[in-house]
Nucleic acid binder design. Structure first.
Lengths: 337, 337
DNA sequence: GTGAAAGCGCTAACAT
DNA sequence: ATGTTAGCGCTTTCAC
């Protein structure tokens, strides 16, 4: 391990002088600076950020906590987050909760222990409130990412789930659908609640009475509730369309539908929230409301850093990013009975 | 900031005693342990890992450096890596080089500065040798992930690129293809070289003379070399099949082919290395050699941790994971002329 | 323009 | 079984 003292000794100066050269602080004569710099380069000295963090009480490290690393929405988001952090001189400690409260708890503890400067946080659900309170108790700034938790006030970067859902519903209804099922995430998650509101609102607008038995609540992360879907599609009046509350659910739904011999969209239409970047590049099939995932990450990180660096007004800020309807092939006019 | 001294004071013991309770080291009477633990819980004390790392010269932090976070091969791998690290009590600092030497350099510096205990490293290319030498100079263990760099000896977890490519070629040739193009990654990358070897070997086996003008070398990360592909397919003798050296390239190739009005597989067959998890779940179209991405990450991390903890023989180990051919719809018998 | 002293929060080694 | 001392590698403060 090569330390600042090794440099100091070899350059025949004090440790303080070396520190000043490295951090470009204080007054240093050009001659000394150059001599020190040369020794640094020669020995390939790299400062120990642990020692640095200890004294500075800052780590220059941010945490990004997401809920599903296999979901392209989050991986694209992660890229944006990383780009923004990098540009402003921060490193990123990733965490993936898999929508699981306990995994999330462990990450929060790691975060607290690492003393990261801030967290861009997609909470697994409303129970995450305990984790957020821990952060607040320690004055670690966080920005809600995509989802919020009731009664916790902090900065937010999100999309408009309610409005997006409403647009999707209007589209289906315009196509002529009357019996529309909703396959949703857990009602523990704010976006799932909002998307359901949009769903109900869409039905109301069209004068269709919401039918609770057309709503299935499961997990955003993966769809394997075969029985649940079975119940939905084997009703006397089979729904002609399914609104899947996210991309992962849509994949599961389509797979199960096909397994049952139902063609999409000929027999049943499917739409969802969030695009499937790769799959769609390859085969533009799914009709979706696409959210600007990269911007979620990029602007979220910017917001977090602005907050940390005191560049934001003291009261919590909210950024709502616009989404965009991408009409493709998975939804069509319902087959006449 | 709440420190070990706050606990010590409140529990009426020394800092050492608290430290011992936290780390379950040394002898502590049950009474003291319980009293201390209670204060810890009450105050919600969480140790400062920076201070800890400083004295222990260990961070319990590992780094995972990948080259494309939007590629499902790497995201699935990342999950495996994280699971394994987590299970053994390590945290993971992710880095994404985007196949870029300079971005990689910055990550390596961050890694060095953070003093991570080890790195699971997918090098961007042969030039990464400078980064690996830096790690070696500082005795930071690393495991080559997926790719290696000539003349650097370290543990390796990888697939058999040469063999996989050969199998893909045999399959195409069995279908009747004689004119097979290769769209490859950069020859700076070991897997690209090996896949090309497999390609050539496949041709040789079938008594087909390799034609250099049927080989296009670009980047694994994305495919946008429209002109390059143009040249490949607009030859007098148009190839009847394309072997894309990874999944991202395959997507690009198929998109460009379709743009040119060529149907896959009716007009031209396409096969590739690595599956597209989501896209394939949804629409099993692409014929691929699938590598066990999760295992790459999981076993790679295990290997790294075993190395760090001295559980491996001193000489570098190599694990080659088996791949699996998944025959689907994107390759078919060539159309008769 | 440069350096000496003290301390960030923790633990290893050594008392007691 | 518990406590004292010293020091991990760095920077802040203040003296020169």
């Amino acid at each position: 391990m090569i330390t600042i003292y090794d440099i100091a000794k070899k350059a025949n100066v004090s440790a303080m002088t070396v520190s000043k050269v490295i951090n470009r602080t204080g007054r240093i004569s050009t001659a000394t600076r150059e001599r020190v710099q040369q020794v640094i380069d020669e020995l390939g000295y790299i400062p120990n950020s642990n020692a640095r963090s200890l004294v500075l009480q800052r780590t220059q490290m941010l945490s990004l906590l997401i809920t599903d690393i296999t979901n392209p929405f989050y991986t694209t988001l992660a890229r944006g987050a990383e780009d923004a952090a990098h540009l402003r001189g921060y490193r990123v400690l990733f965490g993936n909760s898999d929508e699981d409260y306990h995994k999330e708890k462990e990450y929060v503890e790691a975060i607290l222990s690492t003393r990261v400067d801030g967290v861009l946080f997609a909470p697994a659900g409303d129970r995450s409130i305990t984790h957020l309170q821990q952060l607040q108790a320690r004055n670690i700034p966080f920005v809600f990412l995509d989802r919020t938790v009731p009664s916790i006030h902090s900065d937010v970067i999100a999309g408009d789930s309610r409005q997006g859902a409403l647009e999707l519903m209007r589209y289906l209804i315009k196509l002529g659908h009357q019996h529309i099922a909703l396959v949703n995430g857990s009602s523990e998650v704010s976006t799932a609640r909002l998307r359901e509101e949009g769903y109900v609102e869409g039905l109301r607008e069209a004068g269709i009475a919401p039918d609770p038995s057309l709503v299935l609540r499961t997990s955003y992360r993966d769809f394997s509730d075969d029985e649940g879907l079975e119940r939905l599609v084997s009703r006397p009046q089979q729904p002609t369309a399914v609104f899947a509350a996210n991309n992962m659910l849509a994949i599961g739904v389509i797979r199960l539908l096909r397994k049952r011999g139902l063609r999409v969209p000929e027999d049943i239409s499917v739409v969802c929230f969030d695009d499937l970047d790769l799959a769609s590049a390859f085969d533009p099939f799914l009709t979706v409301i696409a959210q600007p995932a990269y911007e979620f990450g990029y602007q979220g990180m910017q917001m977090l850093i602005d907050r940390i660096e005191g560049k934001l007004p003291p009261d919590p800020q909210t950024i709502i990013l616009p989404s965009e309807m991408r009409i493709r092939a998975s939804a069509a006019t319902p087959a006449p009975d």
